Amino acid sequence: MASQGTKRSYEQMETDGERQNATEIRASVGKMIDGIGRFYIQMCTELKLSDYEGRLIQNSLTIERMVLSAFDERRNKYLEEHPSAGKDPKKTGGPIYKRVDRKWMRELVLYDKEEIRRIWRQANNGDDATAGLTHMMIWHSNLNDTTYQRTRALVRTGMDPRMCSLMQGSTLPRRSGAAGAAVKGVGTMVMELIRMIKRGINDRNFWRGENGRKTRSAYERMCNILKGKFQTAAQRAMMDQVRESRNPGNAEIEDLIFLARSALILRGSVAHKSCLPACVYGPAVASGYDFEKEGYSLVGIDPFKLLQNSQVYSLIRPNENPAHKSQLVWMACNSAAFEDLRVLSFIRGTKVSPRGKLSTRGVQIASNENMDAMESSTLELRSRYWAIRTRSGGNTNQQRASAGQISVQPAFSVQRNLPFDKPTIMAAFTGNTEGRTSDMRAEIIRMMEGAKPEEMSFQGRGVFELSDERAANPIVPSFDMSNEGSYFFGDNAEEYDN
C-alpha cells in the first residue's frame, strides 16, 4: 500500500510504541512475548500442572481467558453494579484439565481477579502490559475465525453469508486497541457500523446529549479505520460520505453494504499476525530463551520457528480426527482463516481442507461434555516452508469459486491468482447506482469489472525454506488448481455463540 510509510507498523501498534527502528520493534515485541511466557509459567505453578498438562491447549485457553477477564475493567465495573446470582464479580476462573488415573478430569478453578492481575503485572515488570493482553485477544479471535462461520451475524446486519472472507476479527472485544483495529476485516468494521446506525434509528437519543457526542466521535473513528483499509480513492470518498452524514440511517447502511461487497474484489488491507497460545510461549521462556534479547516478529519467520520446536497437546472428542484438529489450530496460529487453501497447503506441506470436510468441533470443551471418553493427542503445528504475512489485500483475480465463501483475504505475501467468483459478486451490483453516491458507485463498479483474471497478485513473492531466515531465496510455489480455494466452501461450520 502506498501510504505504508505514514502508518505505524503493526509491531508498533502491538507494543504501543512511538516510531521505533526494526531492532527496537523486535525487542519490544519480544518483551511482550516474554511477559506472556513468564505469566503462563507462574500460572502453571499456581495450578500445580504437570509439564504435559501445561502444554494442553484447553488449559492455555482457560488461563488466557482468566487474565483477560481480570483486566476487563468495563465488564468488571458492570458486574459490580449489576450483581447477578451466583456470579462473584471479583473472581474469575474456568475449567482446568488434569490427568488422573490414566483419565482426563475437569476441575473448575476460581481465583481472585486481583490475584491474577498481581501475577500478570509481576510477570511483566510491574506494568499492565496491555500489548500482551491484546495479543491474547487476537489469538482467540484468530481461533474463532478458523472455527466458526459468522453466517447468522452477517444475515442479521443485512449482509450476504458468502462475504465471510471479510469477517476477520469479528469476535475481537471493543477494547483491543490499535492492534485489534489493524486485524479487523472490512466486513467486521461494516458490521460494527451498521449495528451502531441501527441503534440510532431505533433509539432517538442515541446521537443526542453528552453521551451522543461520545457516540458520534466513536462512529467517526470507526469510519476512519474502515476508510484506511480501502485502497481505492472511490471507496475512500464513499467512506467520507458515510462519516460526514448528519443523521446516519438506511442510506448509510446501503452504502456500507455496497462497500463491503466491493471489497470482495477491490480488497481492503487487513493486517495478519501470528499470535500463538500462551502454552507455546511459556515452555520456550522456561527453556531459557530470551525473546527480548533475541527479538521477535509476528509477521516473519519467528512464529514458524517457534511452532517448529513446540509440543502442544489437545483434548480430542471420541469421533474427532486429531489431524483435522491440528489443521484448525495451525490455521489459527498463522492467522489464515480466509487465505486461499492452495497457498496454505503449499506452505504447510500437507493438504489443507475446507472447514466442512474437517471432523472436528471447536477447541474448547463445553462444561456439560462427558470427560470419560476424552483422549488427548499432539497437535501437528509444523510447516514445510515459511512466508511473510501481508497486510495488503493483493490485486484481484477471477477463479472458480464456491457456493460458500466467494473470495479470499490473503494472509501471506505469496504470488498467486486470487480466487473470487466474479459473476456471483457482480450480480449483486445491478441497477442500484442512484442517489448521492452514484458517481462513486459507478466508478467502483467500473474498477471491479476491469479486474483481470490473468493478473498475478504479489508478483514474484515466494515462500522460503525454514533454514532461509533472511528470506534470501524465494520459492514461487505451484498450486494444484483442481483443489478448492475457499475454506468455508459450501460450508456447515458451527455458528459462533458468545
Rank of each mutant, 00 (worst) to 15 (best):
W104H: 12
F206S: 12
S28D: 03
D240Y: 12
F230G: 03
M371C: 06
G209T: 12
L61T: 00
R261Y: 12
N473Y: 05
V29I: 03
R317K: 04
D72F: 03
P322L: 14
M159E: 08
G356A: 03
V67I: 03
L381D: 12
E53T: 02
S486V: 10
M163H: 14
V270Q: 04
G180R: 08
I25A: 08
N395C: 01
T147L: 07
K214R: 06
Q20M: 07
L133F: 08
S84L: 15
G169D: 04
G180M: 10
T6P: 03
R317L: 02
S269E: 10
V414E: 12
D421G: 14
R384Y: 05
S383T: 01
V67P: 13
G54I: 13
A233H: 15
S314R: 06
W139L: 12
K305N: 05
C223S: 13
C275D: 10
L466Q: 00
V463M: 03
N247Q: 01
E73A: 01
T437D: 15
I316N: 08
S392P: 03
R400L: 15
F206H: 04
A442K: 03
A182N: 13
R117V: 00
P354V: 04
S262Y: 06
D255C: 11
N432Q: 00
S413R: 02
I265F: 12
D128S: 13
Y40S: 03
E114K: 09
K91F: 09
S3F: 02
Y40E: 10
N397E: 02
K227S: 04
N205F: 02
V190W: 13
Y40M: 10
E339G: 12
I33A: 06
A27H: 00
G94L: 03
A218T: 01
P277G: 05
I406Y: 12
S377F: 12
R8C: 11
I41W: 04
S3C: 04
Q231P: 02
P248M: 10
S141T: 12
D160P: 14
P95H: 12
D255P: 07
T6D: 11
M374G: 07
F338T: 06
M456C: 15
V299S: 05
H324V: 10
V29W: 06
R470P: 11
S9F: 04
T430M: 15
E294N: 02
E254V: 14
H324D: 02
V299W: 10
Y219P: 10
W330M: 06
P410G: 00
K229Q: 02
G462D: 10
Q149E: 08
E11V: 05
G393I: 10
M167T: 07
Y281L: 09
Q58Y: 12
R348H: 15
C275W: 12
G356R: 12
A387G: 03
A366W: 13
K184T: 03
T146K: 03
A22W: 15
P248V: 00
G460V: 12
E46C: 02
V67D: 10
S217D: 08
Y385K: 02
M136K: 14
D145I: 08
R436A: 09
N211H: 09
M191C: 15
A472I: 08
V29Y: 09
E484F: 03
G169V: 03
R204E: 12
P248W: 08
C164V: 15
K357G: 08
D128Y: 03
H140P: 01
L418M: 01
A218K: 07
A271F: 09
T23C: 00
P277T: 03
R208F: 12
Q327R: 15
Y10C: 12
V312I: 08
A493K: 07
K48R: 06
D51Q: 00
K357W: 11
P303S: 02
T433L: 09
P318G: 14
A332I: 13
T130E: 07
L358N: 11
R246Y: 00
F71C: 02
G228C: 06
H272D: 03
S457K: 07
S287Q: 05
V408N: 09
P95L: 14
I347V: 05
V463E: 04
G462Y: 03
A323I: 00
G30H: 09
A237H: 00
I201L: 05
L264Y: 06
A182K: 13
R152Q: 08
G435M: 11
I347M: 01
T62Y: 12
P161A: 15
Q168K: 01
R267E: 12
S467N: 01
N334M: 00
G54C: 08
K113H: 01
I41H: 15
A234V: 15
K113W: 10
A337V: 14
S376E: 08
Y40H: 12
Q122V: 03
F291K: 08
R208V: 12
A2Y: 10
F458C: 04
Q308I: 01
S392N: 08
K98H: 01
I33R: 07
F458K: 07
Q398S: 00
L381Y: 06
L56D: 13
W139Q: 08
R175D: 10
L306D: 08
I138G: 10
E494Q: 03
F488G: 11
R470H: 11
V67K: 10
P303D: 10
Y313F: 03
A2L: 10
G228A: 05
S407K: 10
R204G: 14
A153I: 13
N368R: 00
D255I: 08
M374Y: 05
E53H: 07
W139D: 10
N334Y: 03
K422L: 00
R382C: 07
G394W: 13
Y313A: 03
G158T: 02
A387T: 04
I406S: 15
E375R: 03
N211V: 15
